[in-house]
Design a protein around this nucleic acid. Sequence first.
DNA 1: CGCAGCTATTGGAACGTTCCATTGTGAGGG
DNA 2: CCCTCACAATGGAACGTTCCAATAGCTGCG
Lengths: 336, 336
Amino acid sequence: MPLMQRIRIKDVAKEAGVALSTAALALRDDTKLREETRRLVRDAAARLGYVYDRSAAVMRSGKSHTIGLLVCEITNPFYAELTAGVEEALDEAGFVVMLANTSESVTRQRRMLERFREQPVDGVLIMPATGTPPSLLEDLERWQMPHATVVRGFRRGAHTGPDNRAGTRMATEHLLALGHRRIAFLGGLVKNSVSRERWDGYFRAMCAAGLRPEQLFCRTDIGEAAAVAESLPADGPTALVCYNDSVAFGATLGLLRSGRMPGRDVAVTGFDDIREAAAWFPALTTIRVSPREIGRASARVLLERIADPASPPRREILAPTLVVRESCGAHPRWKG
Amino acid sequence: MPLMQRIRIKDVAKEAGVALSTAALALRDDTKLREETRRLVRDAAARLGYVYDRSAAVMRSGKSHTIGLLVCEITNPFYAELTAGVEEALDEAGFVVMLANTSESVTRQRRMLERFREQPVDGVLIMPATGTPPSLLEDLERWQMPHATVVRGFRRGAHTGPDNRAGTRMATEHLLALGHRRIAFLGGLVKNSVSRERWDGYFRAMCAAGLRPEQLFCRTDIGEAAAVAESLPADGPTALVCYNDSVAFGATLGLLRSGRMPGRDVAVTGFDDIREAAAWFPALTTIRVSPREIGRASARVLLERIADPASPPRREILAPTLVVRESCGAHPRWKG
DNA sequence: CGCAGCTATTGGAACGTTCCATTGTGAGGG
DNA sequence: CCCTCACAATGGAACGTTCCAATAGCTGCG
């Protein structure tokens, strides 16, 4: 194989018979140049097999068209889908994603953030690891690094996420409308902004109905949720508002294990509407928040901050919708 | 907020009272320098709040310590876990990941690859989108871009993946040992190296046992697999070797829907052992390939190629293991 | 006919590192 | 006492773009 050396703008300019800066302008398709000249240069570039070298552009311009993405747990389908949305929207805007999976480790998150500070990234999108101190925002501001939080957020700063309170409120009200009175909230053992908000939505709906709220604690884990649901007493709750779909999946599995049919014997609702929810048995009634949309929206929010760092940080709260399927018992399958 | 300008090595050198190149060496902790000098510079850097600028280093050295990761579908839990492994291993080696989710689009894959050619990446790790032509390898070689395929591969080139043939062979032999004779393969509607190999392992085991292989086609989708399993006739197969866990999940759901208990009435095996497999009801008997390990191994393989591009490309085929749970019927739950 | 004002093109500095060749310094050997 | 050698530190070019100021060529107007 001929070990050809890399072609630079300089070479293209020589080939096209123009100055280096003319060739550079032409390759960026700058309208300051005559269309004819641009074509001349483009052809020369194609002939030589010129490949743009971003590293030099980044160094000179200070803009890398790259953003750092800190995902709290990419193996969680919800965040994986969200990541796909972020990547998709950024790609459309000509940006590329530097991925860092923190696995819910604040230490690792810190390390990756330091790394992104050195790395030429134009901004960072953060799904904070559980236990992240709010001082993170101050650090980012001090570092003058454009940033936005996703799903999990703080009081202030650019943020994109679902309306968690409204979601669990809708789920709870739906179960109330179906006649349930002993409704428990399952999940939320680990405290973060999301679990607080989801609990709160359920809590308010129960209080508004004059009923006593009850929390059954478990981690966000199918196995743990299954164990809790399996050992639920017969005179326990007749309906479970679950922290998210994974917990709801666990709940249905636990109920099945103890000989109860989810939807008929105990109603179950999820949260997130991840892909598996519709195919589940029984199909899961849940709150749809469309992680892909959140991802796309968060990318827009961050790009806005990068474009205009002085503007006030935008907070975009996406309205969820209730998706009624089988697991809540409202479906014809359980009627009659 | 004081709008301080960025500190460069030059400033650190001045603060420490040494030459620019000395400061640069010190910051890289080069042993050519006296420990005392290094400390002097480190302290000065800390005092001024120096932040290393990778973009300049990349441009000068040509090494970015960044690799491009082309994932065929990140929302697939298997690939999400694999991605986590890649990211983990690369991070340990001081590398960072540029993520591109191709969503099984060859066009998009092509576009991202062109982008990675401009972008300063030291190499690419590819999980080829379905339908990727083998000529991809030639392009990468012509571009002199270090590369390695993961899971899905071609005849040649650096590669890391599970031994798919051995996996389905083990699953099939296990079902044969349990006394099954009418065993069908479920999945593999979309043709790629993985589905061919998995089918092949099953096929060989069946032939070796003197039995007729049978393929029930469906896409890798819970819903489709469920539909196929649901409509399975009573005199159909008594055991299903599924293309992967998602298909197996669909199969169990379909069986449940049609009033059959997976494991007792029809045996089901999966492939991959994704996280949900153990928590499933019934717990899934499957072939464990540990996506995280594949990810970690593939990162090593690529780094090796980057370090020594002249070396012959390594192919690392990881041995899978059979994990016997409930869905194959071998578990005590269904005995007696 | 000269000059303003425009467009199209050019030249060269700058970005902040790394890399290489070179200098300075003190110890050890002939 | 000088020369060599190793070690420590230095100076400056180079990486391939972008950015800005400057120039050349042209048109139109007074």
